[in-house]
Design a protein around this nucleic acid. Structure first.
Length: 470
DNA sequence: ATGTAC
C-alpha cells in the first residue's frame, strides 16, 4: 500500500481501482507498523457509493469487521449515499463516560479499598446476563430504547444535569423500536446496567496531569482530583441488531445495484427501507448503551456516597461507535451526510452550537480510555479539525487475546498491578490476562499523534487507582 | 465487541 506523507502525521492513499475518494490516514510510521490489513480496509471503504471527502483513519487504526476500527466515512444522503452496519461495528454506541469526584486523591486514599469492594459487589460484568436493573417487562425495554439516559434519569437514576453533559442530551430522537428484533430485545433484557467483558471497564482514576487548564476547568476537572471512567456499550442487544441488519443488507444490496469488495461492507442507501430500518434500530441500541452507562453511574454514585461520602458529577458521555446524520461542508457546499465513526470520537470544536453553554468556549470533551493500568486521556475538539470533526478513541490492540494470555497469567498481572498501587477487582483472571497492557498500542502515542495531526488538543491525563473488569 | 460458531 503506497502511503504519501502529505504533511506530518497525515498520509494519503491516492485513488486507484474502484476507489471513489482517496484514503487519508492520520498516524505516524510507527503506529502504522503491521497495519497492512487495516489499510486495505481503508481502501475498500473508499469504494462505497456516495462516500465524500475521503475514507479516513485515526491513529489507533486496526483491523475490524469490514471497516477498520478507527475508521471515519461520510456518505451524501442526497446522492444515494449508503449506510453500512460494518461502519459502526457490533458494539453499537460503545462509549465512555467520565465522572468527577468532589475530592482529591490524598483525602480519598483511605476509602479506596472500601469503595473497590463496594464496586466489586455493585457492578455487574463479564460475558452473559446480569445487570443493575431488573426490567418490569417489554414496555420498559421500549422506554429504554426510546429514552436512553433520559429515561433512566426520569426513573430516578441520575440528576437532570447529567443529561446536559451527555452527547445528544442522553438520547437520540430517531430510534425506531419496531426495527429491533425479538432476539435482540431478549438478549438485552437481562443486561441493562452491566459492563460486559474484554476491553470494557470501570476505573477509579486520578488526574495526573493537566495540559490545558482553561478547558479542564470548564470540564470540571483539576490536578489530583479523583474521577471515575466507565467504558461499555450496548451488550448483546447491539450485537444482535448488527447481526440482523448486516444479513438483511447483504440480501438487499444487489437490488440497489451495489457491489462491494468485501461482504462485510454490506450496505444500502441511507434513504432505503433497509437503510432506514438499520439507522432506526442502531439509534435504539445507542439509547440502550447510554441508559447502560447512566445506570452504572447511578450504582457507582451509591457506592461512593456510602463508602466514602463522596459525590460524583458527570463530565461527559460520548460514543465511539455510531453513524449520525450530520451537516458538513464538502468542497464549500453544505451537505447532509451519514457520518460513520467506528472506533472514532466526534470532537466538536469550541463554539459549536450543539455544545451545552458551559462547554461552548472550551469545545467538546473527548474521552479516551487507555489500557488497563496505564493511563486514560481527556481531549477536546479544535477549530478547523478534520475527518468531519473526529479524533481517536483509544489504544487499539496489537496482540490477539490468545497471544496476550500466553505472555502473562491473570494472577501475575493482578499482582503486578496491585504492587504498582492499583486495586484490581476482576471477574475473571483469564479475562484480565487477555487485557494486559502489552497487547495494546501506547495510548500516549495515539493521543500525541492525534493532537499533532490537528484532530484535537490534549486536556488531561488520568491514571488508575482501581480497576473493575469483566 | 459477542450466550467468543450456524
Amino acid at each position: 500500500m503506497e502511503l504519501v506523507e502529505e504533511r506530518p502525521y497525515r498520509f494519503r492513499i491516492e485513488r486507484h481501482g474502484d476507489m471513489r475518494v482517496p484514503g487519508v490516514v492520520f498516524a505516524s510510521r510507527e503506529l502504522l507498523a503491521d497495519a497492512e490489513q487495516s489499510l486495505r480496509q481503508v481502501v475498500n471503504v473508499a469504494t462505497l457509493p456516495g462516500i465524500v471527502g475521503a475514507s479516513y483513519a485515526m491513529p489507533d487504526i486496526h483491523w475490524g469487521y469490514g471497516f477498520p476500527i478507527g475508521g471515519v466515512a461520510a456518505t451524501a444522503v442526497d446522492d444515494d449515499g449508503v449506510v453500512s452496519p460494518g461502519g459502526v461495528g457490533f458494539d453499537i454506541s460503545c462509549g465512555v463516560r467520565l465522572l468527577a469526584a468532589d475530592c482529591e486523591r490524598n483525602e480519598f486514599e483511605r476509602s479506596l479499598p472500601a469503595v473497590m469492594d463496594g464496586l466489586d459487589r455493585a457492578i455487574p460484568r463479564g460475558a452473559g446476563p446480569g445487570g443493575v436493573w431488573r426490567l418490569t417487562g417489554p414496555e420498559q425495554m421500549e422506554q429504554i430504547l426510546r429514552g436512553g439516559s433520559r429515561y433512566a434519569v426520569e426513573q430516578g437514576h441520575g440528576e437532570e444535569r447529567d443529561l446536559i453533559r451527555c452527547e445528544d442530551r442522553g438520547a437520540v430522537a430517531d430510534a425506531d423500536v419496531t426495527q429491533v428484533g425479538e432476539r435482540a430485545r431478549e438478549r438485552g433484557l437481562g443486561q441493562v446496567g452491566s459492563l460486559g467483558s474484554a476491553n470494557h471497564f470501570l476505573e477509579v482514576q486520578q488526574v495526573a496531569e493537566v495540559y490545558d487548564a482553561t478547558a479542564a476547568a470548564a470540564f470540571g476537572i483539576a490536578l489530583d482530583q479523583v474521577c471515575v471512567m466507565i467504558h461499555c456499550g450496548s451488550r448483546g442487544l447491539g450485537h444482535q441488531i448488527c447481526t440482523d441488519h448486516v444479513r438483511a443488507m447483504d440480501r438487499a444490496m444487489a437490488r440497489y445495484g451495489i457491489s462491494v469488495p468485501d461482504r462485510q461492507l454490506a450496505c444500502t442507501p441511507v434513504e432505503s427501507p433497509e437503510g432506514e430500518a438499520y439507522l432506526g434500530a442502531m439509534a435504539a441500541a445507542a439509547n440502550y448503551g447510554r441508559a447502560n452507562r447512566q445506570l452504572l453511574s447511578d450504582a457507582t454514585r451509591a457506592v461512593f456516597r456510602r463508602s466514602a461520602g463522596v459525590r460524583l458529577s458527570l463530565v461527559y458521555d460520548v460514543s465511539h461507535n455510531l453513524a449520525k446524520i450530520e451537516s458538513h461542508l464538502v468542497d464549500g457546499v453544505r451537505r447532509r451526510l451519514c457520518v460513520h465513526r467506528k472506533g472514532a470520537t466526534r470532537a466538536f470544536p469550541p463554539g459549536h452550537p450543539d455544545l451545552p453553554g458551559d462547554l461552548r468556549e472550551a469545545g467538546q470533551p473527548v474521552l479516551i480510555p487507555g489500557t488497563m493500568g496505564t493511563a486514560s486521556y481527556v481531549l477536546t475538539g479544535v477549530p478547523g479539525g478534520d475527518a468531519f470533526a473526529s479524533t481517536c478513541h483509544g489504544a487499539g490492540r496489537t496482540m490477539s487475546r490468545h497471544e496476550a494470555a500466553r505472555t502473562v497469567t491473570g494472577r501475575q498481572l493482578r499482582d503486578r498491578l496491585e504492587h504498582g498501587g492499583i486495586a484490581v477487582r476482576p471477574r475473571s483472571l483469564r479475562g484480565l490476562a487477555e487485557e494486559t497492557p502489552e497487547a495494546y498500542k501506547d495510548v500516549g502515542a495515539v493521543v500525541a499523534v492525534s493532537e499533532a495531526a490537528g484532530l484535537c488538543r490534549t486536556v488531561a491525563r488520568l491514571v488508575p487507582l482501581g480497576v473493575v473488569k469483566g
